[in-house]
Structure formats: C-alpha cells, structure tokens
C-alpha cells in the first residue's frame, strides 16, 4: 500500500462513491402504489357523492324579463316545478335550499329586457365539503314562474322535474322523473333513471330514459316535419294519441305500445330487442305494415292484406301487409316478443 499510484486511485474511488450516494438515493424510484382498479378503468376522481342537504334558506326573488326569455339553471337536488304565466317576469322560490341570484347574460335589443338569464346558486362553495357543483341550486322545493313564451334549459342531478306551459324545454337529469305538459314548440328530455312523461304538448320531441319508461299522451307537431323520438333501454314506451307523422321508438329490453292514428304519408318505426309491440289503430287506417320478429308471434285483428310472408324457421320472420290503401309506412321489429295490431 506504499505505492503512491495505488493511494491516488483509492482516494478517487472513495470520493466518487461518497459523492454518488445521495444521487443514487434520489435516483431510486419510489415504490408505486398498487393499481386501485382493474386495467382499462381511468383514474379520474370519483364522482361526487352528495349527502342530503338540509338546513338551507327559504327565499324568493323575481326579475322583469323579456317575454321570450331563455332561462338556464342547474339543480342539484330537490323537487322542481316550472310554470308558465302571462307576465314578463321570472319568479323563483326556493324552500330550504340554496341562495340564488339572476345572472343576466343578454338583453333583448327590442325591449332592453333580460333575454338570456342564468339562475345561479350563490352559496355553492359553502357546500364544498360535499363537492356540490358550483352555480347549481338546491332545495326541498324549487318553484319557477316564467313567461309562457320562455325557453328553459335544466341540468339536474337528482331532481324531480315538472314543467308546465312553456314554449320549449330541455331537461337533462342524472336521476329523477321528468314530467312535461303543454310544451308549445318541442322538448328534449333525458333522464338516466326515471320516467319521462309528456302530456298535451306539441313540437319536435326527443325523449330518452335509460332505466325508466317513456309515456306520451296527446302530443303532435307544432310545425310540419316535427319528429317524435322516444328511446329507453330497460323501460317501456307507451304512446297515446300522437299526431306525428314521423315516429321513431326504440327500446332494448322493454315493450312498445302505440295507441293513435296512423297519418297518411307518415313513417312509424317501433322496435325493441326483447319485448312486445302493440299497436291500436283505427279500423280505417291506411298503411303498409312490415312486421319482423324472431321468437314470438304476429297477430292482428284488422283487415291486413298479407303481401309477403316469410315465417320459416330462423331468427327472423317477416310479414309484409297492407291496411287500406297503404298511405303510411309502419315498421314493427322485435327480436324476441310478440307483435299485435288491433282495434282501439
């Protein structure tokens, strides 16, 4: 060890190792957490779980608006009732819920009155512990009165919504039923858990429920060409007294029932993957009927003139017939279920 070169080398090695230790410690990757989910599932933050909100305020506010006002709001929780009235004014009443305010985004150039308004919750942040969506309102009861010509747009979480007598309504809720009445120029209603009910309304309709039923009574177009669409995955569709010429109904594992007139030149498509289809139409109905079904039967008690029939063994049986002169087109399709056309 008296060799000076060996001493130098040893000195260098010692210094190098000493300097490298902290770097090695830092460079060492820390043990990752084990995956919290099965592969393929994104690692987004879980969706907010809302605790029942209690102890809110009861308040009422109103604002003068243009009669064609467009009101938008977001509702976290509660029973929402929207009613049209003959005043150019919006009144909002919240019982045991959030404080709120009117956020005027646009005024009408003609009347200089608010024409585009957001109804905004003011105390949303105080409920941050429960991840309350900002700017949404909540309450035991929420009542809104607005001009009959108003358009209302609602996004909701767990909300029972009733809208009566407005010009147009768009409602999308995650859960809760939607009830629309006297809508003049059409509606869009989507709920992922709950029923959609429409009564005495006109205009283009797009109604959708994931797990609930779609029920429509006494509705028709407000303009020529207005379409009616109803869709549910696991629920039934029940249509009574529709006056639309373009009807498109789809269910996956529910039944479809149609009771009303078949208008000349109309196109009616009713289909379900796993359920029955029942039509009650007047005896003097004129339409061409194409009934396709897999496991099930096709029955009718109207004078249907069979044109082609393929009911051989197989997954699809098809019957094409004509009622009257055949002015409209009716397509009825089910993979598993019966098809019935009968008198009212």
């Amino acid at each position: 060890m008296n060799n000076p070169i060996a001493k130098i080398i040893l000195r260098i090695v010692a210094v190098s190792l000493f300097a490298a230790i902290p770097m090695l410690v830092q460079a060492q990757p820390s043990m990752p957490d084990p995956p919290s989910r099965v592969y393929g599932v994104s690692k987004k933050a879980p969706l907010p779980v809302l605790a029942p909100m209690t102890g809110g305020d009861t308040s009422e506010k109103s604002i003068a608006v243009d009669k064609n006002v467009n009101l938008s709001l977001c509702v976290t929780q509660g029973s929402l009732k929207v009613n049209g009235w003959d005043r150019s004014e919006i009144r909002v009443f919240v019982k045991d819920g959030a404080k709120f305010g009117f956020n005027v985004q646009l005024k009408s150039p003609k009347t200089n009155m608010p024409a585009l308004i957001n109804l905004t919750g003011l105390d949303a942040k105080t409920k941050g512990k429960y991840a309350v969506p900002t700017e949404c309102i909540w309450g035991d009861e929420i009542e809104i009165d607005l001009p009959v010509n108003a358009v209302i747009n609602i996004k909701g979480q767990e909300t029972t919504t009733v809208i009566d007598t407005v010009r147009k309504a768009t409602v999308k809720t995650i859960g809760g039923s939607i009830n629309l009445r006297n809508i003049a120029e059409g509606a869009v209603a989507v709920t992922y858990e709950g029923d959609v009910t429409v009564e005495s309304s006109t205009g283009a309709m797009s109604l959708e429920s994931t797990n609930g039923n779609v029920i429509v009574f006494g509705s028709g177009p407000s303009e020529i060409g207005d379409q009616f669409k109803a869709k549910t995955n696991s629920g039934n569709v029940n249509l009574q007294k529709l006056d639309y010429r373009q009807v498109d109904v789809t269910s996956i594992s529910g039944s479809v029932s149609y009771n009303g007139e078949i208008l000349s030149g109309g196109s009616y498509n009713l289909s379900t993957s796993n359920g029955s289809i029942r039509m009650s139409v007047p005896v003097d109905t004129s339409c061409q009927v194409v009934a396709s079904y897999g496991f099930g039967t096709f029955n009718y008690d109207l004078p249907l003139k069979i044109e082609t029939e393929n009911i051989m063994e197989g997954p699809v049986k098809r019957v094409v017939g004509k009622l009257g002169t055949g002015g409209a087109s009716v397509r009825l399709t089910t993979n598993s279920g019966s098809i019935v056309i009968k008198k009212p």
């Binding site: 260098i12 210094v15 190098s16 300097a19 490298a20 770097m23 090695l24 460079a27």
Partner: peptide, 9 residues
C-alpha cells in the same frame, strides 16, 4: 472524480 460521479448517475 467528477466524471466518475456523473457516469454513475
């Protein structure tokens, strides 16, 4: 020495 440390890192 510096070169050796850089190399190890």
């Amino acid at each position: 020495s510096v070169l050796i440390v850089i190399g190890i890192s």
